[in-house]
Design a binder for these strands. Structure first.
Length: 756
DNA sequence: CTGGTGACAGTTTTT
DNA sequence: CTGTCACCAG
């Protein structure tokens, strides 16, 4: 636990000021790598320690679970167990909790379920169909975007002012969508924010309660807030705002999701007396890298000028390379990484490859696999989006809230139990006629059956066989619901897996089935963490947390391999060595952003975010040719490259000498040089990842770096192998497939080549 | 219920 | 060139 002096020690002047300015609103404009998390956490510790603020009066809001977790960890180090009394969480998690507690006042069911994107989509699809509209003309996806946008801006269907026919239709779909949500006792992600705002606006008493409870409000990543979030914070902070927000306009890259970097400027307007603190000193990168970043971002007009600097000196020049095509782009990266590792200048895990679009990862992955280099891919299918996980969760959701119609239709015939589309259609229609949720209709059916007077009273449009199947399903759900009381979460989950026969259904003997089963086992291990809670709260909390988390914690930190990720995913991370690929017109900046100056500024910020991830070395790559949608095309270097002063880039001085104004990097020259180095490394180096990998028992069949051939997934590289029970669990990166965890004894997989 | 087919879109996606 | 999804045949 730190003393007060320690809390301030090691902070620079600006950081100290940010920590110590306790009264009134504070806006911290924190450049990348300027220690904003540090400021945030130290301020919390300072409030408690120096100011005697009870920890439970402090709420710190983040955007991601990861950021929240990080903050908690750091605060644990600063203030010990007291950190448990702090409220730290994402906007969505905090709102979800408030809504659960204030369900009555908010006018929602305390058992509401949270719909994710997939659930939302099926609901939107239903809304479109309910209105007898063509879902080709009014694509649910597009409708959903509009709905989400409206919600982010706190516009209800009643407030929509349709200007065109399309608007009008979208508005009616929005209305229907809202009704459907209510019928399912469900809230979507946006609702969590919107409903919390509405609650605060409409219920002065509740609002006053929360203001009293949380006199100290801190918000991270302020530039990423949307209108609903801004409003929520403003309401919570109140007039005598003790509000502390940290952000950076230049790192706002989520406008497409409703984030509005203008909220930074708006804050100054809404809180004219706010203390504004600028953090420009960077603790991450070399001055050269910062100069590149400054040069790129300086061209944005809509920003407060800011200039990053470091006191740690120049560092080496950045490298700009033109590859012939995307294949060579990948090869060049690998050669360079091998080169750096061989000279001891970096470890594999220090390197990252960043791209604008996910599609770009494919050729890069291919190159990695071809060259036998392991890698980690960020952003493959998210754990909780996997089919089997969604299915199992749908059962739990249904036990929790049987009116969740999306969950119901997901699993009513999963595993197959003879309830076909026709049956479901008839059931849904019948429920609609009675004006009750689908599950309520099932219950009616069951009761009538029991009373044995079904003929006269209940006239469901269903055949006997269909009815029998539905009754069996209803009995199953009822049984599970009853069983819930006496079981802890893990036992309940196991019962679901057994009674629904989902476990046997998934384990069909195929490799894919095995993988899916392993995912379910992973879910089991998550559920185990909730096993100690009382049955009622366990399920509620579990479902809520699981709905608000996109991925389980990855242990990836431990794997020493380069990371492949989008520029968006790179935000908040740092790497010693960064490769940004595809620096080409129409890719970065993206073609879809070319005709809108606002969006162009965002592309520039995206580039800026990428550049500022690098600590020591930065490589900027583009291809002379690129194959997109099956068509090979000659490409032009990105305009962002042209903004970089020549002296910062290796080899560009010559251009300066030649007074060459344009940036057209002649392919021949750079390519030639690079090709030579590719060849020499390939020859000189039998790559030896074993030097940096962690030791593994010799009894195991696979080792990190081994190339394998899998029957289904094709070629891959072993990233990690460890003992699991008496079997060997192997993590393999497959080209175009991503990471797979396999059991050595089961997987139809052979070693093709080994590392040494 | 599975598997095949054809149409279609393909930027980013913290929750 | 892919991956996805709706739809239909067996």
């Amino acid at each position: 636990m730190a003393r007060t002096t320690e809390i301030l020690a090691g902070l620079n002047r600006a950081q100290q000021e940010a920590v110590e300015t306790v009264d009134g609103p504070v806006l911290v404009l924190a450049g990348p790598g300027s220690g904003k998390t540090r400021v945030l956490t130290h301020r919390v510790a300072y409030l408690v320690r120096e100011y005697g603020v009870p920890p439970w009066q402090i709420v710190a809001v983040t955007f991601t679970n990861k950021a929240a977790r990080e903050m908690r960890e750091r605060l644990y180090h600063l203030m010990g167990d007291q950190f448990r009394q702090l409220t730290i969480g994402t906007f969505h998690a905090i709102c979800a909790r408030i809504l659960r507690r204030e369900a009555d006042a908010a006018g929602i069911s305390p058992r509401y379920v949270i719909y994710d994107r997939t659930d939302q989509l099926s609901l939107a699809r239903r809304a479109v169909r309910d209105l007898n509209l063509d879902d080709k003309l009014f694509r649910p996806q597009a409708m959903l975007r509009r709905i989400s946008k409206a919600k982010n801006e706190l516009i209800t269907p009643a407030e929509m002012r349709p200007a065109t026919y399309r608007d009008e239709v979208a508005w009616r779909i929005y209305e229907r969508y809202e009704t459907l949500l209510a019928e399912n006792s469900a809230l979507d992600f946006d609702d969590l924010l919107v409903r919390a705002v509405r609650l605060f606006r409409q219920n002065a008493e509740v609002l006053a309660g929360y203001r009293r409870r949380y006199p100290f409000v801190l918000v991270d990543e302020w530039q990423d807030t949307n209108m609903a979030q801004y409003e929520l914070v403003k309401l919570l902070a109140g007039e005598r705002a003790n509000l502390f927000v940290v952000g950076d306009e230049d790192q706002s890259i989520y406008a497409f999701r409703g984030a509005d970097y203008r909220n930074v400027a708006r804050f100054r307007k809404d809180f004219p007396h706010a203390c504004v603190i600028l953090l420009e000193r960077n603790y991450r990168s070399t001055q050269t890298i910062l100069d590149v970043a400054n040069a790129v971002i300086a061209r944005n007009i809509q920003r407060q000028p800011k200039r990053l600097y470091t006191e740690q000196g120049g560092g080496c020049q950045v490298t700009a390379i033109e590859a012939y095509d995307e294949q060579e782009e990948g090869d060049i990266i690998i050669s360079e990484i091998q080169h750096l590792v061989a000279r001891g200048q970096a470890r594999l895990g220090d390197c990252a490859v960043m791209y604008r679009t996910n599609a770009q990862s494919r050729p890069i992955e291919d190159a990695f696999v071809r060259r036998g280099m392991p890698y980690k891919l960020v952003g493959a299918t998210r754990f909780y989006a996997r089919r089997e996980i969604k299915d199992v969760l749908a059962y739990l959701r249904l036990i929790h809230n049987p009116y969740d119609g999306v969950g119901l239709s997901r699993i009513i015939n999963m595993p197959p139990r003879a309830i076909g589309q026709k049956t479901v259609g008839g059931l849904v229609k019948w429920a609609a006629e009675m004006g009750v949720p689908v599950y309520a209709a099932l219950q009616v059916l069951a009761e009538a059956e029991e009373a044995e007077e079904s003929e006269g009273k209940v006239r469901a449009p269903l055949g006997t066989r269909a009815k029998r199947a539905l009754l069996a399903f209803t009995a199953l759900i009822e049984e599970l619901s009853r069983a819930r009381q006496g079981l802890n979460l893990l036992e309940l989950l196991d019962l679901v897996l057994e009674r629904t026969r989902y476990a046997t259904y998934v384990q069909d003997g195929t490799e894919e089935g095995q993988a899916r089963w392993e995912n379910i086992l992973e879910l089991r291990s998550v559920a185990r963490d909730y096993a100690d809670l009382p049955p009622e709260t366990a399920l509620t909390t579990f479902l809520e947390e699981v709905a608000l988390v996109s991925d389980v914690d990855d242990l990836d930190e431990q794997v020493d391999a380069p990371t492949l990720l989008t520029l968006h995913a790179a935000k908040g991370l740092e790497f010693a060595v960064v490769f940004i690929v595809g620096l080409e017109e129409k890719l970065l900046p993206h073609s879809r952003s070319m005709d809108d100056p606002e969006q162009m500024e965002e592309e520039r910020r995206l580039c800026y975010v990428g550049v500022t991830r690098a600590k020591e070395r930065l490589y900027l790559l583009h291809a002379f040719r690129r194959t997109l949608y099956g068509e090979s095309e000659v490409r032009e270097p990105s305009r962002f490259l042209a903004d970089i002063p020549l002296h910062l880039v290796k080899g560009w001085e010559e251009k300066q000498a030649a007074r060459q104004p344009s940036l057209g990097l002649e392919p021949g020259r750079f390519l030639g040089r690079m090709r030579a180095s590719v060849a020499s490394f390939a020859a000189a180096q039998r790559p030896k990842p074993s030097a940096v990998e962690r030791p593994s028992p010799t009894a195991l069949r696979f080792r990190t770096g081994d190339q394998v051939q899998h029957k289904v997934f094709g070629q891959g590289v072993v990233i990690e192998s460890r003992l699991s029970g008496d079997d060997e669990q192997v993590m393999v990166a497959f080209a175009g497939v991503g990471l797979k965890r396999l059991m050595a004894s089961l997987a139809p997989m052979d070693k093709v080549a080994t590392t040494d």
